[in-house]
Nucleic acid binder design. Sequence first.
DNA 1: CTGAAAGCGCTTACAG
DNA 2: CTGAAAGCGCTTACAG
Lengths: 345, 345
Amino acid sequence: MDSPPPPPSLRRRATGRATLNDVAAAAGVSAITASRALRGARAVDPALVARVQAAASQLGYVPDPAARALASARSAHVAVLIPLLSNALFVELLEAVQATLAPAGYQTLMGVTHYQPAEEDALLRSYLAHRPAGLLVTGLDRSDAARQLIAHSGVPCVHLMETAVTPGIYGVGLSQVDAARCITEHLLQRGRRRIAYVAGQLDPRVLQRAEGYRQALQAAGCYDPQLEVLDPSPTSMALGGHLLQDLLARHPDVDAVFFCNDDLAQGGLLAALRLQVAVPQRIAVVGFNDLAGSDQMLPPLTTIRTPRAAIGTQAAQMLLALMRGEAVAQSSIDLGFELVVRQSS
Amino acid sequence: MDSPPPPPSLRRRATGRATLNDVAAAAGVSAITASRALRGARAVDPALVARVQAAASQLGYVPDPAARALASARSAHVAVLIPLLSNALFVELLEAVQATLAPAGYQTLMGVTHYQPAEEDALLRSYLAHRPAGLLVTGLDRSDAARQLIAHSGVPCVHLMETAVTPGIYGVGLSQVDAARCITEHLLQRGRRRIAYVAGQLDPRVLQRAEGYRQALQAAGCYDPQLEVLDPSPTSMALGGHLLQDLLARHPDVDAVFFCNDDLAQGGLLAALRLQVAVPQRIAVVGFNDLAGSDQMLPPLTTIRTPRAAIGTQAAQMLLALMRGEAVAQSSIDLGFELVVRQSS
DNA sequence: CTGAAAGCGCTTACAG
DNA sequence: CTGAAAGCGCTTACAG
């Protein structure tokens, strides 16, 4: 298959890779027909499609994403903004998103906001400059600037983890308030009355859970603001242990602790073991999210299982539909949660 | 600042965003001068640079990455291939890489191989089609096809986690063999003789650790192949617990267990607690990597701390140098490890 | 130090 | 159903 190299002047900076023109020439059609055939656009003679595809695979043709993005003014990138990578929840979310988007031909661009609105704004600005085909952001709370950027960009956007109420806002998630109310009611049903809520990080969802906790306790008539421990530090097992120890020192009558997240709860459980505080006899301990290891604790941890993989998958599917310009049946999908009762409560 | 809209015919598919030409016009220079001024290229009159920058920021100009990639045949993407997202080690690596690359203007494209050579090959093929400016891959083991793809692509590539020996191969990591030998010797020094190695996943680094374990025990004359438990399942706390229980049932005389990873070791520690096997009195337990929570265990876990954040940072810096075409002093950097002795041994 | 021309590899919009 | 032309927004390579 020797073909004379093109005169140097004609491909000064060529990369050596087969180009759409090469494919078209080999198939004996015009570049635009080759383009249409390869993209599976309608209105191309099946015979030509076959010829073009054969030529493409024979030449090992791979379309250049940059050229495609420039010509069509739309890239195959989807930007995903998550608060943290150190919380396994978001990693699982990201993994599900990527697993759904990749087979559809989209590249996931991950951005970490560290729960800082300013970082989110900066990331949004920078990612939007790349004209992503779609956008996935975590939660509904963000700066006005961020909201404007998203709205004005015209880029389809789906919100993760919470359920949207505003029309025109797309979201897939669950009601953090309901889930927190549910697990608090579980503690009440078990006869607990001095129930503490111990939280770190204090991001919007952690505060929503505090709200659910409050609702349940107020309804039962045993809400005590003193038992609400809201610590802004990042969560960790160590923090969970410290907060539990402090809490028990200040309020020895506490009979249950609802940790805002499983990492805190796991640390609390280990601290209880260390301090010889019997769980669930003296205090019940519950967490949130059902992270890895919670089922291995001593005793195994009662918690709320959140469907983050399903959230990631369905949000990505919703985004895929929006990017194709399809109408979406429901703009907000509530995937619920599951109370997982183990031996710690 | 009313300027008449350009005739429609001139910007048929314009995106509405300011373009380099707009900036150049506003600054009263040519497009190429504006381009050079904005990229900080040498050989531009400082006065013009200032004018161009003023015009750019006034117009809110953001360069189009697709156009830039197409014209220069090089994107601002760096592809990073890691085996798994469910191992916190790789997440931390990725985070460090991204934190180093982002300020330098590079986008990180993450790919997960699931330890499958075929998946790695496919990802490499697809990422390389995007002409990334650089490539970061985990470990040194891969298929011949993958090796060829990387070599022929001409894209600078740095290998993570291990130390490269082949000339022309760049890498930042540590000697897994040495680290495993070190922690095994620690157990020997503590007087342990029936030391088991319990591993899951069985990726190349886990097998290198097995090698270090063997070397130490053979040198001490107490290597027993029966005490090498190599399970191909993915690692988890639950698996660590099961493997420990099985091991103790089959070999009640085991006096120490070296788990190939901290998640397994944490599960082993919790199982020991459940089974009332005294640690470290009856068996010493050690892990590898020093993951989150290991210091919170009961007893706290002795382990090897691997410098994954530093590995990510330095590998990214090395790649940055290679992408700039700079020579790199050392093609392979050994960042070592640290034996962290806690109460489990 | 600065610029006019050409080109990167695709797709859009318009004809036929 | 197919194609010739123009253009996306930059940068390269060449002059001056």
